[in-house]
Design a protein around this nucleic acid. Structure first.
Length: 635
RNA sequence: GCCAACGUGGCUCAAUGGUAGAGCAGCUGAUUUGUAAUCAGCAGGUUGGGGGUUCGAUUCCCUUCGUUGGCUCCA
């Protein structure tokens, strides 16, 4: 459909193709009826706040199968705020945006919102939705807005307004007795919101700053129909089944024990076998890619952490010191200083560079108790850490190799969907801005060379250098940073690192920190959720389970087991006097990829009945062929 | 650390202001089985820890620890 709109300067703009209008909201400006609309133009989401020409075709659609439900959610947030203000007039409103998955609204309230309060609010929202209250837009000057919110006694809105320039024109949106400061756009009326659910309440600091007051936040989601809401809630339940904490328990992979301490992981035999496969692969590949493997201690003298700056900037994140012979030692929160000491153990020449030191280094950090989360955020974890020390002219090539390496490794584990972020120089930083620029450009070039989508986190770099992060989403759509490639313009100076160049003069080298998996714990967590426990065969702790039908075939079943083991396949046998149905069921629940069922028939003709996890019975196959089938799948 | 919810045997979950009950797992025995649960018996809990209210608490209150969801932080 095509759409014509009149821009504020009077010009007419016409969109020819692929225009989808998400919704149109009526508004009143200077006494004239106006409309604001949000739409999708050529696949891109746009907020249009202009007058629609009389002759323009506009058909209102919902976001059912389109992108851009933000307007919907934002309007629901306003609806919720209205309901809350009616039920609890003493509550002060703050902000309520749409987020990736729904919306929230933060309230300043002495009282916490209980589950029954949420039900009450939902009920009131239903009533307000039935009233089909129009969302009315009104443009006002900043000072007018100040007067309005002063009269309403809304201090948080006043605080926001006080930071806006006086000459700016602002928009207010009202529905019924509720008015909010808001850019819009919004739905035309509250009746459009047909299905919603308040999901949970939680605390949130005003403006995200922990020195500010803790507000009460309510999260919710809404849809144009009850059916979509039902599907959404159902998906949410399904996603919880992939939770690594649940699967970790079911498959007996790991545990975290109260008596040992929060955030400290026990790797059970099956989880440890998977980790062993990961580590073996990791080490082989690093040797292949020109890294040197190193090992370093778990503790180091306070002086070392003084030099590195950790004790002045990161002390809260470190476990407390322990004393030996009158000297304080600290458990390491990072491996860098140790690798630097290896570098500095002898005089280095430009011919030694690039030097790549890699270690599966176990570190301990005092993470806030409230931040701990299964394997995703723990207090003791092993980073697949490496430091690349190079000359300025090696920079670009090294960064490119590094990204290649990262993508190859992620691919090996089956990861295909991830988000890439490039973080640039923050306000407070150390190092030469020209070097920052060169480093940032080398990162950008490497990403673009791979033709990858990425987002720029402007000013999101560490104070010591720009970085690339790769984040992987968990079952509930939360992103976790795994791969990280970080420049460091801080430590080489602090530790006075140098190399002798071809000019026979000392130079400061570049240093890059990088972790491909991030931490093995977190990586394992995302791996579990990504595959829902159905790991690629090469990682499975048990790849084949041999299931004899009865004691009569026990001898042959053991021959099969031995044949598998001889070919390097991790196999087990289930010789219990149980029915085959029961053994199959258990093997299926253990998510073992291959089950070899053997009975009299198979014993006679040296074959096995192959069953593939989630795929079912593949039929009787000669033992040798069955083994080759597994070996192929293992690659 | 902050806000909130939750915490019952190894696991999943019941119940009640009057000293806890089931299924699975475990153990013992029987069963020898053809692609997702064979049957029977037995054993297992000072209801996260501490304190209080009460004639009596697992249930109500306080506190502490832990978990979960957010905030903050971050691999």
């Amino acid at each position: 459909m095509s759409l014509k709109i009149k821009l504020p300067d009077g010009a007419i703009k016409e969109f020819e193709e692929n225009v989808k209008v998400i919704d149109v909201a009526r508004s009143i400006s200077d006494g004239l009826a106006n409309s604001s609309l949000a739409g999708i133009v050529n696949g891109k989401k746009v907020d249009l706040d202009y007058e629609i020409c009389q002759d323009a075709e506009v058909s209102i659609i919902t976001f059912k199968s389109e992108e851009g439900p933000e307007i919907y959610w934002h309007s629901t947030a306003h609806l919720m705020a209205q309901a809350v203000k009616q039920l609890f007039p003493e509550v002060k409103v703050t902000i309520g945006p749409a987020i990736d998955n729904g919306f929230y609204y933060d309230f300043d309230s002495e009282k916490a919102f209980s589950d029954s309060d949420l039900e009450k609010i939902e009920q009131r929202m239903k009533e307000l939705s039935n009233e089909k209250l129009p969302y009315v837009r009104k443009e006002v000057s900043r000072n007018e807005a100040m007067e309005i919110f002063k009269a309403m006694d809304e201090p948080y809105k006043l605080e926001i307004l006080s930071e806006i320039p006086e000459d700016e024109v602002l928009s207010l949106y009202s529905q019924g007795d509720f008015t909010d400061l808001c850019r819009g756009p919004h739905l035309s009326h509250t009746g459009k919101i047909k299905a919603f659910k308040l999901l949970r309440s939680s605390g949130a600091y005003w403006r995200g700053n922990e020195n500010n007051k803790m507000l009460k936040r309510i999260y919710g989601i809404s849809f144009p129909s009850k059916k979509e809401l039902k599907v959404y809630l159902n998906n949410l339940e399904e996603a919880k089944k992939r939770d690594h904490r649940k699967i970790g328990k079911e498959l007996d992979l790991f545990s975290i024990n109260d008596d040992i301490g929060p955030g400290l992981v026990l790797w059970h035999p099956k989880g440890a076998m998977i980790r062993h496969q990961i580590e073996t692969f990791w080490k082989e590949q690093h040797l292949e890619y020109g890294y040197n493997l190193v090992y370093t201690p778990h503790i180091g003298k306070g002086q070392l952490w003084e030099t590195s700056g950790h004790l002045s900037f990161y002390k809260d994140g470190m476990y407390d010191s322990m004393e030996m012979d009158g000297i304080d030692y600290y458990v390491k929160p990072m491996n860098c200083p140790f690798h630097i000491m290896i570098y500095k153990s002898s005089k280095r020449s430009y011919r030694d560079l690039p030097m790549k030191l890699a270690e599966l280094g176990t570190v301990y950090r005092n993470e806030l108790s409230g931040a701990l989360h299964g394997l995703m955020r723990v207090r003791g974890f092993t980073q697949d850490d490496a430091h690349i020390i190079c000359t300025p002219d090696q920079l670009e090539e090294e960064v490119e190799k590094l990204l290649d390496f990262s993508l190859m490794v992620l691919g090996k584990f089956g990861f295909e969907n991830f988000e890439i972020y490039l973080s640039t120089m923050p306000e407070k930083s150390v190092g030469d801005p020209n070097e920052w620029q060169a480093a940032t450009e080398s990162l950008r070039k490497a990403i673009e060379k791979h033709n990858l989508d990425y987002k720029i986190d402007e000013g999101g770099g560490a104070f010591y250098g720009p970085k690339i992060d790769i984040k992987i989403k968990d079952a509930l759509d939360r992103s976790w940073q795994c791969t990280t490639i970080q420049f460091d313009f801080n430590l080489p100076t602090r530790f006075d690192m140098d190399y002798i160049g071809s000019d026979n003069k000392p130079h400061r080298p570049y240093m890059i920190h990088r972790a491909l998996l991030g931490s093995i714990e977190r990586f394992f967590g995302t791996l579990i959720e990504y595959h829902a426990g159905n790991f690629p065969v090469w990682l499975c702790p048990v790849q084949v389970k041999v299931l004899p039908i009865s004691d009569a075939t026990s001898e042959y079943a053991n021959e099969v087991l031995e044949a598998l083991k001889k070919r390097g396949i991790r196999a087990q046998i289930d010789e219990r006097s149980e029915k085959i149905n029961f053994k199959v069921r258990e093997a299926e629940m253990e998510k073992i990829p291959y089950m070899f069922v053997v009975g009299g028939k198979e014993a006679e003709e040296a074959s096995v009945s192959v069953r593939r996890h989630t795929k079912g019975n593949l039929g009787v196959i000669k033992l040798e062929d069955a083994i080759n089938l597994v070996l192929e799948d293992k690659e």
